[in-house]
Design a protein around this nucleic acid. Sequence first.
DNA 1: CTGTTAGCGCCTTCAG
DNA 2: CTGAAGGCGCTAACAG
Lengths: 325, 325
Amino acid sequence: MRDVAARAGVSAMTVSRVLKDENVSTATRDRVLAAVRELGYRRNEVARNLRLGKPSGMIGLVVTNLGNPFYSQLALGAEQVAETHGLRLVLGNTAGVPQREHELVDDLVSRRVDGMIVVPAGSTHQHLDPASLGGIPIVLASSPPAGIDVDTVLVDDFGGARAATAHLLAEGHRAVGFLGNPPTLFTGAERFRGYWAAHEEAGLVPRDEWIRRGPDDIPTAAAATRELLDRPAPPTALFCTNNRMTLGAYREIRRLGTATELAGFDDFEMADLLDRPITVVSYDAGEVGRRAAELLLDRLDRDHSADPGPARRTMVPTSLVHYGR
Amino acid sequence: MRDVAARAGVSAMTVSRVLKDENVSTATRDRVLAAVRELGYRRNEVARNLRLGKPSGMIGLVVTNLGNPFYSQLALGAEQVAETHGLRLVLGNTAGVPQREHELVDDLVSRRVDGMIVVPAGSTHQHLDPASLGGIPIVLASSPPAGIDVDTVLVDDFGGARAATAHLLAEGHRAVGFLGNPPTLFTGAERFRGYWAAHEEAGLVPRDEWIRRGPDDIPTAAAATRELLDRPAPPTALFCTNNRMTLGAYREIRRLGTATELAGFDDFEMADLLDRPITVVSYDAGEVGRRAAELLLDRLDRDHSADPGPARRTMVPTSLVHYGR
DNA sequence: CTGTTAGCGCCTTCAG
DNA sequence: CTGAAGGCGCTAACAG
């Protein structure tokens, strides 16, 4: 800025004013802008924010696995909203490791992000309390806060699972298997709850031997499916709590050639190209990101006012999609 | 930091030293660390970098569409490498709009990123020249530089397309159709070149009426497929230059019930679950991101030395995968 | 081992 | 309308 000032024959203050679009005589302004162009000068936004006592103009986004389409869609949604406010997104991938999440959040605080959107990796959230984060606001996505009071965006895991299971029951199935991830994950627990609730509402109770809550990838899901179907009175339908479970189950059912009906959480491209019918619980992952960013932006505004208001919670709806009918 | 210093009864300088792990007496250090903990103090990395004259410790990643798995995998790969060096990733999505790319790059320069990885949205790259970017290094991904001299990571578009087409020809097909995106995209041009080269090497020349370079989504690809197959002597096989083309073609072929053989660029999950065989050109998108980050990190080191060295170029290989055999 | 001074690049405040 | 002084939070460089 000094160089620009020297070249234009003014003080640095005048350059600053020109760049801020403050009152400067037209002649001076033109000379300054010319100097800016000639020198290829760009104001240092970092120094600017420091002086203004403002944060960095960036939002931290901490997810468990960016390789998962759900999270990249979420990121895209958050980016779209952030960008309308001139905010950039800083990415952090935790790979589901709570320790890593802790470090990342800490680092982002040190970098003075304006706020953060976090998909929690663990079930302990104490380290995500804005109070212990220098007051930096946080929004949780896909998992509700535990022991802290922050804005949250959830997917209707319970409702989606219940609807999918209810559909299978309505088709006349009386032995609906469950293939899911460990109940330690909020999402897993909710979807299991939905599976159970649909049964109760139909006056039924799922049998333990239809339930597998261990598998966590396609091969283990396929193996679990084989076990389930390889019993005397096997389930005639299967509800899977996520994409990978559904794929594993689909492969195995196809291989075995049974008539097992399949429903699963998470939509996927090409589901309509499969050669057997399938029902999926679909939802808009981008919407999760958009809502999270909106809550955060709103909070950033509020925090400047007297009353920050209470923590809010919003739920992104799901819908059932039937393929291959 | 002043507060911490006051609480520990030392000067700010001593706090700074403790945080830097410099020589400080054990007693003093303990007092300082206690104060840090009690106050929940975190060093302001922004101010620190400003004083040290260093950039922000962040890498800009500018892609055309984060919703595309290719780019999110790329982002994940770049993040993995960056994080080993304590660098964060700042995201920018251009939606393929060159103007937007220009703004984003400019903004990232103003935010003093250490360097940038860019998937160009347009064919003009003048605004990506480090010389006009205040010397901030750039790595291009998936498209070669035009008129500037920067490090680049490419996918073997030509080789992959050639191999896929050669496979179809080796199967005995003598009328292989082409379904691709406009030749204005580097990637599209290269893949077309590969298609052509495979023919030449077999002593053949593709006919114009087998070639469709217009479609850019699933429905238009399906429509183009119908046109191609709806002629007197239709192609008996089809090469598609990307995922969406392949899906569109697959749907239409399946609907028409023809025996058209299909090969396409881009692997996809579940390709093995389809009910007709298909050949895809597969490659590791994460590897593109990793290599780009490595080139960038290496360049960041070099730039501090006397000789920055020449621009480098690396190509990520492709492989052919046959499904449903 | 610890403190003081000065300044990174910018902008608020107060004078001219 | 324009400039000078001072400081955001931090740390090199130089005392002591």
